[in-house]
């Protein structure tokens, strides 16, 4: 039994359509989201711990956690998603430390990015690549 390339593509397309994850955002939308958060300041690398699986079993539910000691806010971004912002955490006076975990949707393989606003007004950044694959058993 063989499958033509066209048939294989149809099969693949059916799988991705079921994911309901459409066009990636333009780089501009990502830049805008970063700028809105940092006010144009350039974040420096380091000082932020960002954890997410190297390979996501399903792009619709990907665990992610962030920590940045001394940060007042942390923004998580998925640059290749249709809307790049994922969540913005603001830590209040009773926070036990600037850390949080959640679960996110990723449209495709990308560098998930976290930017932290530090107490002194500077910004710190971390990135981690999460591979998102289209499964064989769509739905």
């Amino acid at each position: 039994m063989t499958l033509t390339r066209r048939e294989a593509l149809i099969l693949g397309a059916a799988g991705s359509a079921a994911l309901m994850l459409p066009l990636p955002a333009s780089a501009a939308a990502f830049d805008d989201a970063v700028k809105a958060f940092t006010g144009g300041a350039t974040p420096k690398e380091g000082g932020v711990t960002l954890n997410a699986p190297e390979i996501a079993e399903n792009g619709n539910t990907v665990p992610v956690s962030v920590e940045a000691k001394g940060a007042s806010e942390i923004l998580i971004l998925a640059p290749e998603n249709p809307t790049p912002k994922v969540a913005t955490f603001s830590f209040g006076p009773l926070s036990g430390g600037a850390s949080a975990s959640t679960r996110m949707r990723l449209a495709k393989t990308q560098d998930v990015t976290a930017i932290a606003k530090m107490a002194d007004g500077s910004f710190a950044m971390a990135k981690t690549t999460v591979k998102v694959t289209i499964g064989g058993c769509g739905g």
Binding site: G15, A18, L19, E57, N58, N60, T61, T133, I134, G135, G136, C137, G139
Partner: peptide
């Protein structure tokens, strides 16, 4: 084995109904 990116199981149903990450 993998079928595309999915890791094939024995298709056991002892854990059903299951929460599927895909459909939420």
């Amino acid at each position: 084995d993998n079928i595309r990116a999915d890791h094939l199981s024995q298709g056991q149903i002892n854990a059903f109904p299951t929460y599927r990450l895909k459909q939420g």
